[in-house]
Nucleic acid binder design. Structure first.
Lengths: 338, 338
DNA sequence: TTGAAAGCGCTAACAG
DNA sequence: CTGTTAGCGCTTTCAA
């Protein structure tokens, strides 16, 4: 069957009719007599005919491929989103091709190029942590190639996107800390140019204000999103003259790294320091103490991203909807009442 | 650029030469004069010409697509292997399409069908936990469609595969337990029809024998690989008349589930019960206590699987190499000396 | 040294 | 109701 995929021609030869007759019969064209149609469809089924997508693609100039670019594929966050995208794509008869940027803008650009060469019909992407200029995406927009962002977006680019409500989430965390008696709340952020960093930081600041807490610059730190750098940032916080009594990290990677550091410093969670993550990792429930965190609707985010993509294809480049997904604070041991 | 991909024809029109001349010049065919060749190549570069893979595919009857089927994509184990496959595939100018069976044989069969329709050139798969009959794969073999298995393989099918040395790994674990003073060693296995279950069980039994320990059927249990069922199996062990003093699980999922259960029972690790996993999860170092486990060379497994695939394509279906990867026991807190 | 034509599998406009 | 033809982008004989 490898080289033995049956073609319309094969069917036509066998039945001694023309190729177009076969083609029409297979799509129930009214022009073809009922009997002939039946006969042809039977044979097609018997021979296990399936249309050659290459031929169709060439004809219609479409590959039914969506290029998906993510920072990495091994983090549960991304693989879960990918599952969501895949599910919806499949429903539409599309399949996805995945590339990971490894958080490198260079690889991101390269992936865009490669996907273009492969004639993907469009892109669904979450930018790398390095991505602060967007020429490679602007080029896509100019050429009207469908592009959708999720989670980390390029704000200046007006394309459809799905993000989580980071402002709200961060506010929830601050309030939660406050209500449980924590006052010196620290936040480990990410690169400033990323919308997720900015939003959560805004929420952090707003939350502090709403709780009547004064913002202390010493309690705000930043890392490049790697576990190593998150550990470094945590150490910095722990070596402060003013030791925080609560920390929340931009994401799961950071929270886990912080947990390790805090333990290493001989501090207890949540007694000495409370900790909250931003994640949907099931591991949150395994670590000790179990980790309070913002649960992120990853599967939904993937599905919504794909839905946006198909709407974009349909409605054209004027479609610019942004979906903001609500998150939920899941309280566990790491932030218990003092 | 969406519909504006440049074609040979475009180039030909612009230069007022024939399409075949363009085609030849682009591949440095000696027939074409040096100047013309240069001129054509320059224009091609300028216009950003890239060959249409659909057209090439149709012509050569190849899609450059490999269908990859895994039990799920969100587990680090699989996503890491996928990364490895992807890396090698890309080097060969192929790309991979991923489907997850969700551990359901039905979905696995469906994915094979779908991929076939998409004209993938072959398959790289890790079978679902339900997979105990193989018609869908036998069909591929009959039709000489390249097929490679990794981790969980179909033993009766003689195709290339990469597996980890489960016998050796399990023996290492038993010896490790024994040397650290544990004598009542339990093993939570998986479905009997999976090679990974069988191998590790064999290693378990051999290890016991080598250590002069008598096999106790009460200490051998089985689960279906889901976290829930692993929890159930753990409970069963913990409710035994003979409480084990050490447990190892077939994989990471099981080990983590067991850890939860053990803690829930108010037992301490490793004081009351030692625990060892089979995993490469970085979370092993975050849980408390940190989890001793067999580190599994996932990235390498992915790469090797892809390498086998390309060898298979090249050498034809007589190629049946099996690669057995060595594993390493990484000792952490969960199995400390008594 | 270059061009014309056929063919990969399919659809659709145009003829009968 | 059915067949012929052209064309999607490309390579490859075969002609010139």
């Amino acid at each position: 069957m490898s080289r033995k995929h049956i073609s319309l021609k094969d069917l036509a030869n066998e039945l001694r009719v023309s190729i177009s007759t076969i083609s029409r019969a297979l799509k129930n064209h009214p022009d073809i007599s009922a009997e002939l149609t039946a006969k042809i469809q039977n044979l097609a089924k018997e021979r296990n005919y399936t249309p050659n997508p290459l031929a169709m693609g060439l004809l219609k100039q479409q590959t039914k491929m969506i290029g998906v670019i993510v920072p990495d594929i091994v983090t549960h966050f991304y693989s879960s989103i990918i599952s969501g995208i895949e599910e919806v794509a499949k429903q539409h008869g599309y399949f996805i091709v995945i590339a990971s940027s490894n958080e490198l803008i260079e690889k991101e650009i390269e992936s865009v190029e490669n996907f273009l060469k492969s004639r993907v019909e469009g892109f669904i992407v979450c930018v790398s942590r390095e991505t602060s200029h967007f020429e490679h995406f602007e080029k896509l927009i100019q050429n009207e190639i469908p592009l959708v962002f999720f989670d980390r977006i390029c704000e200046p680019l007006k394309v459809p996107s799905v993000i989580a409500d980071g402002v709200d989430a961060a506010k929830k965390i601050v309030h939660h800390f406050y209500e449980n008696g924590y006052k010196k709340i620290a936040y480990i952020s990410g690169p400033e140019h990323l919308n997720i960093s900015k939003n959560r930081k805004d929420g952090y600041l707003q939350g502090l204000e709403e709780c009547g807490l004064k913002f202390d610059p010493q309690l705000l730190t930043e890392c490049n999103l790697s576990a190593e750098d998150a550990a470094r940032a945590t150490q910095q916080l722990l070596n402060n003259t003013k030791l925080p009594d609560a920390i929340f990290g931009l994401n799961d990677t950071i929270a886990f790294a912080a947990m390790k550091e805090i333990k290493k410093h001989g501090l207890r969670i949540p007694d000495d320091i409370a900790l909250v993550g931003f994640t949907d990792e099931f591991h949150s429930t395994i670590v000790e103490p179990t980790l309070t965190s913002i649960s992120h609707p990853t599967l939904e985010m993937g599905k919504e991203a794909a839905n946006l993509f198909f709407q974009l294809i349909k409605k054209g480049s004027n479609f610019k909807q942004q979906i903001v997904l609500k998150t939920e604070l899941v309280v566990r041991e790491s932030s218990k009442k003092r």
